[in-house]
Nucleic acid binder design. Sequence first.
RNA 1: GGAGGGAUGACAGAGUGGCCGAAUGUACCGGUCUUGAAAACCGGCGUGGGCUUGCCCACCGUGGGUUCAAAUCCCACUCCCUCCGCCA
Length: 433
Amino acid sequence: MIDLAQLRREPEFVKAALARRGVSSDTMDSILAIDVEHRRLLQEAEALRAEVKDLSRRVAEARRAAADDVAESLAARSREVGERERVAREACDVAGADLRARLLMIPNLPSPEAPDGPDETANVEVRRWWVGMDEGAPFPTFAAHQRVAHWDIARELGILDLDAGARLAGSMFPLYRGDGARLLRALSSFALDRHRDAYEEIRPPSVASTETMMSTGHLPKSADDMYEVPRDDLWLIPTAEVPLTSMHRGEILDESTLPIRLTAVTACFRREAGAAGRDTRGLLRVHEFDKVELFAYCTPDQAPAAHADILARAEAMLRDLGLTYRVLDLCAGDLGTSSARTIDLEVFSPGVDRWLEVSSVSWFRDFQARRANVRFRGPAGTQFVHTVNGSALAWARIWAALVETYHQADATVRLPEVLAPYFGDLTIRPRMT
RNA sequence: GGAGGGAUGACAGAGUGGCCGAAUGUACCGGUCUUGAAAACCGGCGUGGGCUUGCCCACCGUGGGUUCAAAUCCCACUCCCUCCGCCA
């Protein structure tokens, strides 16, 4: 949630920032108008409330003085004022609820560093990396055997059964088998071990309450993108960011404990409601995938370094996996609701000949912390923490990129050395069954 | 799923209708004392909101209700503990 006090204090600044991501100035003006009205009603209700309290106090005094008739007349007056207070309070609550509902729909202010632009076409490519680049090698051309789509390779090797997944849950719910399943397990272990030096491993629930979903900004705006369990008022998490952000909800942290850095592997569930039929072959876009997330609660001062650390770790993993990737600085118009700045990592998957998003490293400033009410106590008093997070990494697309990149001329897949401790024999051969 | 007990400030723990936003202890911060520290003593010490910055309002798990007045009474819900049942 944006800071209402800031909106009042410097409305033109906030409007200008939000205009960069398509929020109209009229929208903000109507919020400001409701805020004025809400405060007027609040003052009215509170003044009446104070009067009721004062009268009640005098009732008690009169009772103590055994002046029962005085007490009764004071009580009668208080009843009357109380009735007016109830009316004022109701009007105030209506305005307050309206104000809050509108504020919840307002996205975060983009960071000044985020480039201008209306949508993903304006994202800025910061750099590319490929094996051998540092030694001056040109962007790879990829051999013919690398130009085979992962779904074809996977069928041949028997490591992915999309038909079975569809039978179980519908299309875009992949079922991995054999070495395909084992590869996912290896990737998660590889990532979690790698970040153990600084990030505490968490295994959170895979579902979250409506309140929890509100904290990260996924609700109310993105309800259509998530799976709901209405009977129990729960939602399947679209990312570990959701539980990790709420882990310390409502707490006041001691500054000395910051940054609190966490990592978790979870299944991530996405309905992909707006993307039906687009880029959905194979593992390009699926409803469920595993992902290792890196996350930090930090002070505003620590946030840039924490954000950079997550980006550096995600990139280092891609390099160690020997995958070709590029780094995109998301423009203001393409940022997620809660984010002030986001750097995406896209891996190049030669068989499908496209860049696939495998990580999104975001800095939310205090937007999520304000919703989740996570603060810290420092020398300057109590203030909201900053949250940052990023994937390291999303496995379905990494799986696809690995299988395509490392597809050999002999039809096997030869995985990168870095996975040896987790996968053993790095060669995936056709299943003998 | 059933029965019972509980939820109060950083923590512990009083408070069962009326100056209770809340005793007391611990922790924490400042001071006195001390060569220094400890102890002792003195003082301070929750969060958020509104405006005429001194006042007002809200917050005792959450949401309703009763009352002139609710931490306190009533109802529902959530979570924790104990026991029973079921169970990977």
